[in-house]
Measured scan of single mutants.
Amino acid sequence: IRKQWHEDITQDLRNHLVHKLVQAIFPTPDPAALKDRRMENLVAYARKVEGDMYESANNRAEYYHLLAEKIYKIQKELEEKRRT
Rank of each mutant, 00 (worst) to 15 (best):
L78Y: 15
G51H: 13
Y64L: 15
K70A: 08
E69W: 01
Y54L: 02
H19V: 03
Q75N: 03
E7S: 08
T10D: 13
Y64W: 02
E79L: 06
N41A: 08
K20F: 01
E50P: 01
N58Q: 07
L42S: 06
S56Y: 14
L42M: 09
T84S: 09
L42G: 04
H6M: 04
L17P: 03
T10S: 09
E79N: 08
V49L: 10
I1C: 11
L78D: 12
R60I: 09
A24K: 00
Q11H: 00
L67M: 15
Q11T: 05
I74G: 08
K81C: 03
L78C: 12
T84Q: 10
E50D: 02
E40L: 05
I71W: 00
P27Y: 05
K48M: 09
L21N: 00
A24R: 02
V49C: 11
R14M: 03
R2E: 08
A46E: 06
A24M: 11
Y54P: 00
E62S: 01
L66T: 03
F26Y: 09
D36F: 10
K73S: 11
K73N: 10
T28W: 05
D30Y: 10
E77F: 09
E7Q: 15
L17F: 15
K48Q: 05
K3H: 06
H65W: 04
K70C: 05
V22S: 04
T28C: 15
E80I: 15
L21W: 00
S56W: 04
R2H: 11
A44P: 00
V22F: 02
A32V: 11
T84V: 11
Q75C: 03
N59G: 07
Y63F: 06
T28F: 05
P29R: 11
M53G: 01
M53Y: 09
L34T: 14
I25C: 09
E7F: 10
M39V: 07
K20I: 01
E79G: 10
V22I: 12
R37Y: 12
N15E: 15
A24N: 03
I74Q: 03
N58Y: 03
P29M: 14
V22H: 00
Y45V: 06
E62T: 04
L21D: 06
E80D: 10
K48V: 04
A68R: 14
L67C: 14
L42Y: 13
Q4R: 10
Q23H: 14
G51T: 13
Y54I: 02
N15H: 11
L66R: 08
K73F: 05
L78P: 14
W5T: 06
E55L: 10
E69T: 07
P31W: 08
R47N: 03
V18E: 00
N59Q: 02
K76H: 13
L21M: 09
D52T: 02
A24P: 02
H19W: 11
M53A: 10
D36T: 08
K76Q: 11
R14P: 02
A57V: 15
R14W: 04
L17Q: 15
